[in-house]
Design a protein around this nucleic acid. Structure first.
Lengths: 206, 206
DNA sequence: CTTGAACCGTACCGTACGTTACGGTTCGGC
DNA sequence: GCCGAACCGTAACGTACGGTACGGTTCAAG
């Protein structure tokens, strides 16, 4: 993956945000100032280009892991809030919306695995990233739960609620930084109310 | 809307589930045993057909309203669980997945308002349907909350979690009747833990 | 029986776009 | 300076599909 190829994928990405799945190979070539022949040489066909574009965007998203050391209620709360805030910021971005839209479209007629790629780098990656935090919280006696996966899904629901589906369906939902901060804090408090150790040690609704 | 037209839309609906947004007018005409000329006469163009199909499906979904009389904790819990169960059943159906997929696709390039229609008959209709139950619960002293809309969104998040986005992205997620019943009961208990009057009268995370 | 409206089936048209081909240009290696 | 590889720009090809036209059929009204 040369720098030039990355430039081309960046152009494709911008075009994907602007045009959605209606982007044409001609438009990508023009935007990237490259020839269509090169596009086909590098990426095989249109699906290959889209797949490479999605992977390229995924590779750009890098988040620092959360440290497990010196975990107390305050630091756990901060980690959860930060995680929620990051997640809400990502899913409400134009790029994420465009990528999820095209992935959802393609998941219908299974020509490629765009849906699986987005799922793997989105929802599932988030799970892998937060689970250590949850389990560290449990090890520190701050959280009470049995199944890490199920517990993550609860946190996921409290954070995302109806945001993603509404954005994907075109709802004009303005998520300001203040709203994200407030919602993240609220979701974290609700999560702690359900799974925090000090509140209800053995009543999780199971 | 004659019966014949409804038959045509049913054919289009089945084809939409099978083929997704890749369905062609020719395929619809063949499946419905009608001529393309009739399709264009009745529905104007392809977008008109899709819009009519989505509206037709929406018009078929009818749910009995919940009665507000004799509300106690048991009946409120039952109402919430039933609502959650219905909702999960709907969004995990092949029809809903296909319709949401095409609506998400079209929401990208705003040729029509499929996204708005699905949003209006899905997420927003659910809100209008459950809000009376929530407010009746509050009037009966069973629930504690300020903003009905925000409270509905919390319940929505607890119920749906990551289900819809995973299904839309093609994840093979098997929602058995037993799983739906269990998840609905769990979400309801979690919601009551957050907003039930008997548990924590003034700590909703606001 | 006649008539005309509605509709079916199919052939046809125009276009957009994916894909390929090709001549011209740049540029690093020798 | 010469060569070949890589690449640019553009033209061209093939096809799929949205949309239209038209002849044939059904059927109800009178």
């Amino acid at each position: 993956m040369t720098a030039r190829q990355q430039d081309v994928l960046d152009a494709a990405l911008r075009l994907l945000v602007e045009e959605g799945d209606a982007l044409t190979m001609t438009a990508v070539a023009r935007r990237a100032s490259c020839s269509k022949e090169t596009l086909y040489k590098w990426f095989g066909d249109r699906d290959g280009l889209l797949t490479a574009t999605v992977r390229w965007q995924a590779s750009k998203v890098r988040v620092e892991p959360v440290d497990r050391a010196r975990l107390n209620l305050a630091s756990l709360t901060a980690s959860l809030e930060q995680f929620a805030s990051n997640w809400l910021t990502v899913i409400s971005s134009e790029t994420s919306i465009a990528l999820n839209r095209v992935a959802v479209s393609h998941a219908g007629s299974g020509k490629d695995d765009l849906g699986a790629i987005v799922l793997e780098n989105g929802r599932f990656e988030m799970g892998r990233r937060l689970k250590p935090v949850l389990e560290a919280g449990r090890d520190a006696g701050l959280l009470v739960f049995d199944d890490t996966e199920e517990t993550f899904r609860i946190f996921f629901g409290l954070v995302a609620r109806d945001v993603q589906i509404r954005l994907l369906l075109g709802d004009r939902l303005k998520l300001t930084a203040a709203a994200i901060a407030r919602d993240s804090a609220q979701a974290t408090q609700q999560f702690l109310a359900l799974h925090g150790a000090q509140n209800r040690p053995a009543n999780n609704g199971h």
